[in-house]
């Protein structure tokens, strides 16, 4: 069933976008700044997971061992991405917190370019390939089949998002994050350590992106230094579509974008005489970004911010 497959594909890639988008939205909520290097944080996670899977056996993994191996890979990826984010925040953003608005942006672009090329250089410019350890079959009935890997991606990311919501709503640190996002000065007066809360925000967003990197690697095995660029922009688009600054918005936006670009491209291709290669997914995503920013800058959930100086 072709359209059902497209739907599942859209939800799968959408779950990756949603996880990355959360990082953008969290940081934006607290600093009103786009963390341009977030796509690279995602990329680092994918690589960290890759090396863990190689170390614990690579292609030889099988049976019951794959679950602990994948959990370990995700954990290490989250750790690696978070550490990278802490360093980035410390050297590239914190010194510029009161600088003109273009400064942290340019600094972030610098970090992004440097990280891409460091990894490209370390891998000799060649793709690395995730070990294919996940069972390739599918389940469902009749024409409606869902691949195990896709189901795993969707379920895993939904669980992560649920955990994030609980963290933000129920824990002390989560409350501190919301307070700082609401009003940094007041939060500071209330005894909240603003610097630490900002770092925590980066860590949480980066951990999600790192896990997203492993998830995508399990599904689409080729990884390289520049792999973070497109998902980065698209996840940002997802965050904007959902209303940047809004956590549920980023989740919904991620799935929405995933569906729009896969199903949308196929819908356009269904027009007789039109054939659109895969890259047109990117064109659809960018066009959506521009349209949303121009016509509905609030996104679906968020406040109006894109015009703020």
């Amino acid at each position: 069933m072709f359209w059902f497959d497209q739907l599942i594909n859209g939800l799968t890639i959408g779950s990756v976008y949603a996880l990355i988008a959360l990082g953008y939205t969290l940081v934006y909520g607290i600093l009103q700044m786009i963390n341009f290097a977030h796509g690279e944080v995602f990329m680092l996670g994918a690589f960290a997971g890759y090396f863990v899977l190689l170390a614990v056996g690579g292609d030889d993994l099988g049976g019951a061992t794959i679950i602990p191996a994948i959990v370990l890979a995700m954990f290490v990826a989250a750790l690696a991405s978070s550490s990278a984010a802490v360093v980035i925040e410390r050297i590239a953003y914190r010194p510029l917190r009161n600088a003109p608005r273009l400064a942290p942006l340019i600094s972030a672009i610098g970090v992004s370019v440097a990280l891409q090329n460091i990894v490209l250089r370390m891998t000799g410019g060649r793709d690395r390939v995730y070990p294919r350890i996940f069972p390739g079959g599918s389940f469902g009935f009749g024409d409606f089949q869902v691949g195990y890997i896709q189901a795993f991606l969707i379920v895993a990311s939904v669980l992560m998002m649920a955990a994030l919501l609980v963290f933000i709503q129920r824990t002390r640190t989560g409350r501190a994050m919301r307070a700082v996002a609401e009003n940094r000065a007041t939060a500071s007066l209330m005894g909240i350590d603003v610097d630490r809360t900002i770092v925590t925000t980066f860590v949480v967003g980066a951990a999600l992106a790192g896990v997203a990197g492993v998830l995508q690697g399990l599904w689409i095995p080729n990884i390289r230094g520049t792999m973070g660029f497109l998902p980065g922009i698209k996840a940002f688009t997802a965050a904007v579509v959902g209303g940047i600054g809004s956590v549920p918005g980023a989740m919904v936006g991620g799935f929405f974008l995933g569906l729009t670009e896969t199903v949308g491209r196929e819908l356009l291709s269904a027009i007789p005489g039109v054939h659109l290669p895969n890259e047109w997914s990117d064109v659809i995503a960018f066009s959506l970004l521009v349209l949303v920013l121009v016509f509905r800058p609030t996104g679906i959930f968020g406040e109006r911010v894109s015009r703020r100086a």
């Binding site: 942006l105 960018f286 920013l293 100086a309």
Partner: peptide, 12 residues
């Protein structure tokens, strides 16, 4: 991109 500023302009 006329109505957009700063980082939004950059990403668009």
């Amino acid at each position: 991109v006329l109505p957009l500023r700063g980082d939004y302009l950059a990403i668009v």
